[in-house]
Amino acid sequence: MITGFLALYIFMLAAFTGYEIISRVPVILHTPLMSGSNFVHGIVLVGAMVALGHAETPIEIAIGVVAVLLAAGNVAGGYVVTERMLEMFKTSRPASPQPAEKKQ
């Protein structure tokens, strides 16, 4: 059971972690990172599953299904989009021949 102050500590530490991660990021990665953090809050799917899993009345089930559907979209879409963006960083390193000679 997480009580008030323990939660506050978790909130505080997690907030600092997030702040630290971003503060050293080069501009080139801003968009992929925004997309990546968009994927990470897809963890809401776990919560949506719990909410639907314990739903009893039809209205609760209906809203729960909507929650799971939306959250699943967040997870899958967030992953695909981030992965596609980051995939392109590969090409500028070893794969393409022209830039290779520019690297030291």
């Binding site: 978790i10 907030a15 972690t17 997030g18 971003i22 953090s37 776990v46 919560g47």
Partner: peptide, 25 residues
């Protein structure tokens, strides 16, 4: 916040990290 309501630590931490990172961004 909803992670706290459900007492789900993974949601609390992931959500908060994104919340802070997103605010800075």
């Amino acid at each position: 916040f909803e992670g706290f309501v459900l007492q789900n630590e993974a949601m609390i931490i992931a959500g908060m990290v994104v919340g802070a990172a997103g605010t800075l961004l």
